[in-house]
Design a protein around this nucleic acid. Structure first.
Length: 431
RNA sequence: UCCGGCGUAGCUCAAUGGCAGAGCGGGUGGCUGUUAACCACUAGGUUGUAGGUUCGAGUCCUUCCGCCGGAGCCA
């Protein structure tokens, strides 16, 4: 028996006979030679079948193979300068696991809708493979970052009895004799957990029923949300910039080949080191007004406004002190200038827009209950949340980072639907 | 919800109001170093739907459906 080897480790087996198990990615031929490009999920390698070196039956089997047929290939590993991987396999035997039917995804270009209909197969292509490996690295590095800082993972529920910030954007679902809603943020539960553990994060899917049809929106996306007791806005911004820098540097360190597959401009990522520029809302408005005179001071930024700000910097920029009127009820106001909230957003460069939203939370019971009423929210649903301000309330802050937006930016791809294995969009719930 | 764009072969696209076409993929054959290999031959069509204008509609007009992008909202 020859050893069963993953292609990514093939360099350890030079001039040895090995078996690889995978799928036929592509096939070329020249007379009495067959070139089989075989992928196994770890990498792709070219296998050469020479008619004169092997039994006739094995050679004939090569011509039966269709794209994505599953095969086991045995042969001798050699170095080869012509190979992108650096290695080839001279085939001595080949067994067919299954002959694939005509594969819908060809080597030429396809449209987005067709590829999304075939998302379950599209995942096999090299670009999608690279993106999802980078997604894996972003998530791994995110957990590593918080784990190293003694944060405890405390996940929040998916079913919730009420809205965090309003009811218009929630998915409603039957819950026995009543209604439940799919969560749009784990934050309120994160605050409860922070009062229990000091520093926590939650990581899970969140849901927005907004009818958004843009390249920046999904109806189901993943968010990682740290929450820290005794943190103020400054602490929160510092945590956020160190966090994002860690994510980018981890991808550069561990997924450089994948970035190259995506033809990402690496120099744009190498800049991403803390500290990041931080500007007050008022400064941001001044910058926007130079290019968009129609912008009204006091409004939230639109996507074009975010781009105006972010293109001024070579790394993510944090905008803080947004007008309280455009922000959520739970955000604390600045005692010095109460019209502004102790809120911050982080905007990714190159026009990728908001990847983080965070704030210091209102910790005063009376002020918080007033905000809940001002926003027309049912106070009775927030009794447990208000309890956090009755039993040892402390200053605290946190933020949420959108995984898909972050992956989209790091990968330098156009649309975040490719940054999640099976995207859920307003117009798509299949496959 | 609003604004804009697009629906032609399995896929990506072409076709001035006048014979429905190419590349890829499929099939057959050829080639001993191919790199989205190449060469030859071949099969493949209710032009999204319903109506209208016209001697004649893939093309012009209207309806509906689907998709894409953007706005709003947000991660």
């Amino acid at each position: 028996m020859t050893p069963f080897v993953r292609i990514q480790n093939i360099g350890e087996f030079i001039e040895q006979e090995v078996t690889i198990k995978g799928w036929l990615y592509n096939k070329r031929s020249s007379g009495k030679l067959r070139f089989l490009l075989v992928r196994d999920g770890s990498a792709t390698i070219q296998c050469i079948v020479s008619k004169n070196d092997i039994p006739a039956e094995v050679f004939e089997n090569c011509d039966l193979l269709t794209q994505e047929s599953s095969i086991e290939v045995t042969g001798r590993v050699s170095r080869d300068e012509r190979s992108p991987l650096g290695y080839e396999i001279q085939v001595s035997n080949l067994s067919i696991v299954q002959i694939a039917e005509e594969y819908p995804i060809s080597k030429k270009e396809h449209g987005v809708d067709f590829l999304m209909d075939n998302r379950h197969l599209w995942l096999r292509s090299s670009q999608q493979h690279a993106i999802l490996r980078i997604r894996h690295e972003v998530i791994r590095a995110a957990r590593e970052f918080f784990d190293q800082r003694d944060f405890i993972l405390v996940d929040s529920p998916i079913f919730t009895p009420n809205a965090a910030e309003g009811t218009s954007t929630l998915f409603e679902t039957d819950y026995f004799d009543g209604k439940a809603y799919l969560t749009q943020s784990g934050q309120l539960y994160g605050e409860a957990a922070a009062m229990a553990f000091g520093r926590i994060y939650c990581f899970g899917p969140t849901f927005r029923a907004e009818k958004s049809k843009t390249r920046r929106h999904l109806t189901e996306f993943w968010m990682i949300e740290p929450e820290v007791a005794y943190f103020n806005l400054q602490d929160d911004m510092q945590l956020a910039e160190e966090f994002v820098a860690h994510l980018v540097q981890s991808v550069l360190k561990n997924r450089l080949p994948e970035l190259k597959v995506l033809e990402r401009d690496i120099s744009k990522l190498e800049n991403i080191k803390a500290p990041f520029p931080k500007i007050h809302y008022r400064e941001a408005v001044a910058m926007i007004k130079k290019e968009n005179p129609a912008f009204i001071d006091g409004d939230d930024f639109g996507a074009p406004d975010e781009t105006i700000i972010s293109e001024k910097f070579d790394r993510p920029v944090i905008v803080h002190h947004y007008p309280a009127a455009v922000k959520a009820f739970y955000m604390k106001r600045d005692p010095q200038e109460p019209e502004y909230a102790l809120a911050m957003d982080m905007l990714a460069p190159e026009g990728y827009g908001e990847i983080i939203g965070g704030s210091q939370r209102e910790d005063d019971y009376e002020l918080l209950i007033g905000r809940i009423r001002d926003h027309g929210l049912p106070v009775e649903n927030f009794q447990w949340y208000l309890d956090l301000r009755r039993y040892g309330s402390v200053p605290h802050a946190g933020f949420g980072l959108g995984i898909e937006r972050t992956v989209t930016w790091i990968c330098g791809i156009k649309h975040l639907r490719e940054a999640i294995p099976f995207p859920r969009l307003m117009q798509r719930i299949y496959p």
